[in-house]
Structures are given as structure tokens and as C-alpha cells.
């Protein structure tokens, strides 16, 4: 019998810090948003050709996921749920994400032009990155999450996405030299490699029990 490291239900022994660490590891590794939930695949396939752009997009996704998960948690908890209009969550979440990305873009442009040029084209793209909306939607399915848990869950998923795209970018840089059948070039070979990486990540399951 395997002994779970900890349980993520509220009131479990281990204190808040341990619980948050478990949520983080589970979200980043065993439940990786890209490799087991397949979210953010379109930009993953398109961008992972280069290491530098992958890092830029990955960091932007990780940051936006973390913050919007927390904001959307508050919106759901204090606005849509008490009013009984949960079916509007979808529309509200996407507006929150779009608005946050817009504000972030303006803030980055104002305070750090260097970062703005580095991230430039990726920020607007993020609004329609399904990983961001996905994290907020999956968060609603988790029982007993508070604000801290939501924030850490967002961060874990964001870091997991960053990790996956960096792994892929590294592999694809080596792949450029190889001879690949014409029909497999581009997306299909990337999908096969993703499958193999996903197999590796499945090895983490059992490490954290939900």
C-alpha cells in the first residue's frame, strides 16, 4: 500500500504550507495542464520551435495564469455564486482574463520597455490561450479551495506549462538537424514527442495523492 505524502483536503494534517506545496507539485507534475489536460496546445505547437520565444511565452503564461486564477476565484466566490448566475462564469472569466492581459500589457510597456519588447507579441496572444481559461475552469471543480489554494493551483499549472514548453523547445532544436518524413514534419512529429514526454510525466502519478 502506498502512503500518500499528504492529503489536499482542508483541515488535513501538515499545515497550510505543506498543503500548498502538494497542490503546487500536483498541478505542475502529475496533473500537468499541457501533457495530461492538453490545454494551450495550439501555441505550444506553434511557438516551441525556438528556446527564446518559448521562455518568453512560458513566463507570460505562468504569470497570467497565477493572477487570473486568484481573481477568478474571488469573482466566482463573491459575485457569481452568491447571485446564482454561475452559468455566466464563462463570460465573466474571459472578460477578466482579457482585461487583465490588457492592463498588464500597458503596465509592462510603461515600466519596463525592455521586457515589453521581449514579451511584446505574446501578451495579446495569451487572451485566447486556452490554458489560462482552462485553469480557472478546472479550479471550480476542486472542492474546498480558498484564495491561497487557488493562487498556488494557478501558479503550479503555469509553471507546469512553462516546464513542458521548455522541454519541447530543447528537443526541437536538436530535431532540426534530423531527417524526418515530409508528412511528419512540424506538428505530427511534435505530437509524437509530446506523447513520449507525457509517458514520462505519467511516472509522477502516485507521487501525490489527491
Amino acid at each position: 500500500m502506498t502512503v500518500p505524502l499528504a492529503v489536499t483536503t482542508p483541515g488535513a494534517p501538515g499545515g497550510l504550507a505543506a498543503q500548498l506545496l502538494i497542490i503546487f507539485l500536483a498541478a505542475a507534475l502529475t496533473d500537468n495542464i499541457l501533457l495530461t489536460r492538453f490545454l494551450g496546445m495550439c501555441s505550444f505547437l506553434a511557438i516551441s520551435r525556438q528556446m527564446k520565444t518559448s521562455l518568453g511565452l512560458g513566463v507570460a503564461v505562468a504569470f497570467v495564469t497565477t493572477v487570473t486564477a486568484a481573481i477568478n476565484y474571488l469573482v466566482h466566490r463573491y459575485i457569481t455564486a452568491p447571485l446564482g448566475v454561475e452559468f455566466l462564469d464563462l463570460i465573466v472569466f474571459i472578460v477578466v482574463i482579457a482585461a487583465f492581459v490588457q492592463i498588464l500589457e500597458m503596465a509592462v510597456e510603461r515600466f519596463s520597455p525592455a521586457l515589453y519588447f521581449a514579451l511584446g507579441i505574446f501578451l495579446p496572444l495569451i487572451t485566447v490561450n486556452c490554458a489560462i481559461l482552462g485553469v480557472s475552469l478546472f479550479m471550480l471543480n476542486k472542492q474546498g479551495y480558498g484564495l491561497w489554494q487557488a493562487l498556488v493551483y494557478g501558479a503550479g499549472n503555469g509553471v507546469g506549462w512553462l516546464l513542458a514548453i521548455l522541454l519541447m523547445a530543447g528537443i526541437r532544436q536538436k530535431l532540426k538537424e534530423d531527417k524526418i518524413p515530409a508528412g511528419l514534419r512540424g506538428a505530427p512529429i511534435t505530437l509524437i514527442i509530446s506523447g513520449i514526454i507525457a509517458l514520462g510525466f505519467i511516472g509522477f502519478s502516485g507521487m501525490v495523492k489527491f
Partner: peptide
């Protein structure tokens, strides 16, 4: 999940080759 990646890769390969 890995099965999904492998199957989509195979179907895309077929589709891309047929519509080349």
C-alpha cells in the same frame, strides 16, 4: 493522454500526406 498524442500524430500524418 499519450495515446491521444500518438493517434493524432498518425491521423495528421495520413491527412497531410493525402492532401499534399
Amino acid at each position: 493522454p499519450p495515446g491521444a498524442f500518438f493517434m493524432l500524430a498518425l491521423v495528421s500524418w495520413l491527412g497531410i500526406s493525402l492532401t499534399a
